[in-house]
Amino acid sequence: MPQQIKAIVITGNGTNCEMEMAHACRLAGFDEVDIVHISELLCGTKRLDDYHFLNLPGGFLDGDDLGSAKAGANRILHAAVAGSEELLFDQFARFIAAGKLILGVCNGFQLLVKLGMLHGLDGIYDRQTATLTFNDSGRFEDRWVHLRANAASPCIFTRGLQGIYLPVRHGEGKFIPRDAGILQRLHRQNLIALQYSDGEYREATMDYPGNPNGAVDAVAGICNETGRIFGLMPHPEAYHHRTNHPRWTREELPEEGMGLALFRNAAVFLRSESL
């Protein structure tokens, strides 16, 4: 009997991609997919422990008013779960320790980075070692980009991918590591799972608009050392069907959108694990 796999998609306080994120999880084969308002976690009526795959979708947590996802990160770090002794962060830590999967997209990626949860270098999950900040253009932009996958990355989500074409829709997507040492480690450990690239997914690019935000070393998505936590600025859930592709009326495309591959990889992985 294969493992029953459950996905949770967190929403509330300005998150806005929860519908398509849940849709992508369903198409990828998750047995249960719940869109859960963060107030349900804080009230204790829902718990992360009951799920295997945590989705942090795009949006504008608290309007990104203090910098992208900053106020959202503050909430997860400091808000208590009603009727218990724990903070919401404790549930996140337990989820990670259990080896479950986390995917943060756009604002969800920003949230992971601002929490410090993503890098998880040396097993520390609450210290920020990099950031995502204002695009070099100073503008929010919606445009499709090519992303080169790193075949050597431990990332569960990008397994088997050579490259992927997805939309970015952000004003604060420029990846900056704290220092050269961090960047070296990310490279050395192949934690940079996706980079903005040329149209053939061969070379990472620093040229606008292929690299839409000026991200250092064209970083578009990174994972932690276990490959089970992954964040990326582009939106895989926005390309779930060929009609999402900007040129579907002029190109022969497979029925399924490329973005679903990330969710399928998550489902396949979780089915094979007993968590």
Partner: peptide, 19 residues
């Protein structure tokens, strides 16, 4: 480009199109 024209995942014909 400064407006998100595809959030909610149902975009079919976008404001900008072509090669």
């Amino acid at each position: 480009r400064q407006y998100d024209h595809e959030v909610q995942g149902g975009s079919v014909v976008k404001p900008l199109t072509g090669a």
